[in-house]
Amino acid sequence: MLELLPHLLHQALFGALAAAGFGVLFNFGFRALPWCAAAGALALAVRTIGQDLAWSLEGASFAAAIVTSCSVSALRKQLGPACNAVALAGCIPMVPGAFFGQALLGFLSVTAPNLVDAEATLIIAVQSLLRVIFTLGAIGAGLLIPAHLLRNQDF
């Protein structure tokens, strides 16, 4: 387990940076940005542990979103109604944008003239698209279920 620690810390660090960077884009205040970074670090740490345990990307993302949403909900007194938004910012680094791009580029490739291995290209594109759909669904459900069950206030 100790040999996995550098990789875990690497993923958590860059998860934190990605979440904080998008927090700035979403106009979070400077006081909320460290919470976004912490949520991003937690989400990526949990997802990395899950994947190291040979879980699928979708399963690990679901677990990470649930843990992040529950943890942020526990800080409702400090964060107020913004807690759901902080959890969402923390999970942004898990959004499979690269797979989405790969899927669409794959579909574009299938229509190209003189395609050599159309079946393989199509299967990779479909796999990527399905991965996007299931991972986005896992993140969304992981964020929403605790927020609904714990009755997080929107106002």
């Binding site: 940076l17 990605a18 960077g21 944008g97």
Partner: peptide
Amino acid sequence: RHPAWVVAVAVGIACASFGRL
């Protein structure tokens, strides 16, 4: 709102971090 250049740098860092992930 954060200044445009601050947002740009922050997004650049976020993209690079995504890249490392």
